[in-house]
């Protein structure tokens, strides 16, 4: 448990500095991807790690282009391409699972600042647009046709104290 939930917290990452230095970023990404897949909640976005991995992907893309124009053996080029594909797959899958979670728990996320702080800037934007779209949809489809007391998107009625959505 501890290893799964602690992965996202900055304190732990600092403590593991030694092992971080010796572990390739792809390996860390794979770990983050597994945790994200297995966890029911959205975990902390791995900002630095993702930035580094994207950098490496771009570098490899450039290398492959150079190789192709330099007339390096096509076998070598195709092996580099496979390595690149694997890394890109991991990254895409990681980002995609997070987007799925955001779509699924958008009201919960928008209600809880703590959960929201786990998202990246772009993800926050995505969550906001998702919530707005859903609000508009519910508003136009149902809520505007209900009595005034019942038009809140999160509560069953204005007098209800509890948020029925997004808990």
């Amino acid at each position: 448990m501890a290893s799964a939930s602690g992965e996202g917290s900055p304190a732990r990452v600092d403590g593991d500095y030694e092992s971080l230095v010796s572990t390739p970023d792809v390996e860390l990404l794979k770990r983050a991807w597994r945790n994200e897949k297995a966890a029911p909640e959205i975990l902390h976005f791995q900002t630095d790690l993702i930035r580094r991995v994207i950098g490496q992907i771009q570098l490899t893309e450039e290398t492959i282009e150079e190789f192709s124009s330099d007339g390096i053996d096509p076998l070598t080029v195709s092996l580099y391409q496979m390595d690149l594909d694997r890394t890109q797959y991991l990254l895409r899958s990681y980002l995609r699972i997070r987007l799925q979670k955001i779509e699924k728990y958008m009201f919960h996320i928008s209600n809880k600042p703590e959960v929201q702080s786990r998202l990246s800037g772009q993800e926050k934007g995505f969550a906001r647009r998702c919530t707005e779209d859903m609000e508009r949809h519910l508003e136009e489809g149902v809520l505007s046709k209900l009595p005034e007391n019942y038009q809140d998107i999160l509560k069953q009625s204005i007098i209800s104290e509890e948020n029925d959505m997004g808990n």
């Binding site: 792809v26 070598t76 690149l84």
Partner: peptide
Amino acid sequence: RMDALNFICG
């Protein structure tokens, strides 16, 4: 015979 491969994964 093939040169070393410097992949993202190692």
